[in-house]
Design a protein around this nucleic acid. Structure first.
Lengths: 232, 232
DNA sequence: CACTGTCAAGAGCAGTGCTCTCGAAACTGT
DNA sequence: ACAGTTTCGAGAGCACTGCTCTTGACAGTG
């Protein structure tokens, strides 16, 4: 038991050190963006750069850890916001997810850019990141499924998809738990794509000097696309 | 006259050198992405790094030149595609712009990432870039205006915008030459945002291993949002 | 007490952006 | 045609980067 405790202490100290490095790295990220300097982080921690390599095998490893944390923080924010809304209020849940995503993104723009911006050239996202990255869309899929059960998603007679594409959309529907017909899933995916576009436009400064009423514009967009999807 | 000719020769040689540097830099961009090495470019050109500074004041200056070229190349591609469609075919013109944008983006993914990806931290886009960057949306605005004149854009009774936001949307409409009512402009902006989202999802690898039928999916999205806007 | 694994530190390598200086070459006005 | 100016490429050098390897100190273990 004593050995176990000692070992766990050692492990805990190490874990705290890892957290400390990530904390400082995140702070640097907010200033310098993706070109994160491992040496500068080490300096801020009062240690030498080589010491950091005891905790992260490379700069990419540190970035990967930050990316993973960002995905999970974003997912948490979205899920927390959605959970606060009564289950029956489907439109409210959808809006809550959108606001949750945007709120986190505006509070952590550099981390948002890290996960939803241009991919880093030599960097390939490891498989651990794909599950956390799907959390928002899974969340929206669940709302879509509930809306379908509630009879909200009416067929507007949209163009049907070509068979091969229809099969892929069906697979996405299964994965996200959105057991809804094709036409509804397509509209949901369009709304999700527009949502992402709106976030990126705002976060990447593409509506600077153009739209100042950002809150109102975002709210309007989300409501419009939710209505398009059939939520109310 | 002789002096003039001599001077123009010097200027032309210099212009050729600038083009040569940009050409090699673009090639590097396609491999290494945004973290472009000025020294590596110089090496490829058989010159020393300091010589490149005769042509570009800094690495950022080189990047700015590439960004400007990218905006213009993208604008050219969109305008060329749109110009090939009969003026009366409004849906066709909209689809052509979308295909033109996507075609160029797929052919030059790194350059697309440069202009539409996460902003480079310390880098602020100079004013010269804002006009070329608006070309696609101005193009779409023109189609919208023609569609309005043709009586295609019917009012669906969408929620009106709050006054302050409505004024900003009206300003965008004026700027893009889209002399259309608010409800039509809003739907057009939603379609544009979704289009950008779709492009970024595909270009930044977010639909990898999810949608293989990319051409079909993109075509369907664009048609759906065009229909939403009122084009046919 | 000796042993083992862990850690921080330092030196060092190859690469980066950028500045400065120095000759050589090209262009300029007289 | 000659002197003067501008333009250019090369090289050295500075401060920085990611990363590796070695060294010495320390804590936990048998």
């Amino acid at each position: 038991m004593a050995e176990q405790k000692a070992a766990s202490i050692r492990a805990r100290v190490r874990a705290e050190m890892v957290d400390e490095i990530k904390r400082v790295a995140r702070r640097h990220l907010a200033v310098d963006g993706a070109n994160l300097s491992l040496r500068a982080v080490a300096r801020d921690l009062g240690m030498v750069s080589s010491a950091v390599y005891r905790y992260f095998a490379s700069r990419d490893d540190l970035l990967t850890a930050l990316i993973l944390d960002a995905y999970n923080a974003l997912g948490d924010a979205a899920e927390r916001a959605e959970a606060a809304v009564p289950r029956g209020d489907l439109l409210g849940r959808w809006l809550a997810v959108a606001d949750g995503l945007r709120g986190w993104a505006l509070a952590h723009p550099e981390e948002y850019a890290l996960i939803y911006g241009s991919p880093v050239p030599g960097y390939a996202a490891p498989v651990d990141t794909v599950e956390p990255s799907t959390r928002p869309v899974v969340l929206l899929g669940g709302i879509l499924a509930d809306a379908w059960r509630a009879g909200l998603l009416v067929d507007h007679g949209d163009d049907p998809l070509p068979p091969a594409l229809a099969a892929e959309v069906r697979r996405i529907a299964e994965f996200t738990g959105a057991d809804v017909p094709e036409y509804a899933m397509v509209r949901g995916l369009l709304a999700w794509t527009e949502l992402f576009g709106a976030l990126s436009f705002e976060l990447f400064g593409r509506i600077n000097n153009t739209i100042l009423e950002r809150d109102a514009w975002f709210a309007h967009q989300v409501r419009a696309m939710a209505a398009y999807t059939g939520l109310r």
